[in-house]
């Protein structure tokens, strides 16, 4: 399997001034290496603050790594000229966690979805309609503003925008964490359909292990800026090697009352 995204020994640090003397350095990403194969879904799990979003921002060039590299479709991003970099980056798109802050409240749906097209100089109104249809939205939503949509519909709009430039990779930063259970399933199913139809590769980030297990081919477990374990989905979930992975798994409450301690036998 050829790799579409390769992260190699990436380090990202934040320095913050603390009071009058001294600074404190946060190693938000501390030597992370990951490989995302074409057409596959790599799940990245970890608790909040472990560095998942920082990793994502670094992939998109919003943070500068202290060392290490990010390669997209075989091209090393560090040291690439801005124009070439922009071209490579158009094949990776981002879907955000918070459906409320990811859409500009002043803009109409049409303009939100069209924005990447306009920036790339490839705007065509029909393409917007096509993208909306792709995520299961009617063309008549185009003139409305984000406030008129539920969280799940907003997330669909965000996904449509991410698909605008026909990317090969979607980075999904906790795309269903803010949604209700019944809506989570809608969005997860949509993501699975899109992957099948468009042959996308997903870097799927979450703190919810059930969702990761549902979607991923391989899983990486992150803790305090490091990857503690990577493996096939079933290996990670059925036979975790790292104690941290095991403790994460043990913490998921299982949605079956008969599996709780002291439960009566199932009648």
């Amino acid at each position: 399997m050829s790799a579409v995204l390769e992260i190699d020994d990436l380090h990202v640090r934040f320095t913050s001034r603390r009071g009058l003397r001294g600074r404190s350095v946060v190693h938000a990403v501390d030597g992370v290496s990951l490989t995302l194969g074409r057409g596959e879904t790599l799940g990245l799990v970890g608790e909040s603050g472990c560095g998942k979003s920082t990793l994502v921002r670094t992939v998109f060039g919003l943070n500068t790594p202290a060392s290490g590299s990010v390669s997209i479709l075989g091209q090393r991003m560090q040291g690439l000229a801005p124009a070439a970099r922009r071209k490579v980056l158009s094949s990776v798109q981002l879907v955000f966690q918070d459906p409320y802050s990811s859409l500009d409240p002043r803009m109409r749906v049409h303009d939100i979805v069209a924005e990447p097209l306009r920036i790339a100089g490839r705007y065509a109104p029909e393409r917007v309609v096509e993208l909306l249809a792709e995520v299961g939205l009617d063309a008549d939503v185009q003139q409305r503003r984000p406030a008129q949509f539920s969280g799940g519909q907003r997330q669909r709009i965000g996904i449509a925008r991410a698909l605008a430039l026909r990317p090969e990779i979607l980075v999904l930063d906790e795309p269903v964490s803010a949604l209700d259970v019944s809506v989570q399933a809608q969005v997860v199913n949509l993501l699975m359909d899109l992957q099948e139809r468009l042959g996308l590769s997903y870097l799927f980030i979450a703190h919810d292990l059930a969702v990761v297990r549902h979607l991923s081919d391989r899983v990486a477990v992150m803790r305090q800026g490091r990857i503690v374990e990577t493996g096939d989905r079933d290996q990670i979930f059925d036979a975790p090697r790292h104690p941290y992975t095991a403790s994460l798994l043990a913490s998921i409450p299982h949605p079956d009352p008969y599996l709780r301690p002291g439960a009566p036998p199932r009648p």
Binding site: S182, Q184, A185, M192, V211
Partner: peptide, 23 residues
């Protein structure tokens, strides 16, 4: 039933879960 069906669980990994339509 729909809520229970939309739970993403180990047994259903890799396949489509039931999703209650609409909101």
């Amino acid at each position: 039933a729909g809520l229970l069906g939309s739970l993403l669980s180990a047994e259903r990994a890799g396949s489509r879960a039931y999703a209650i339509p609409g909101s």
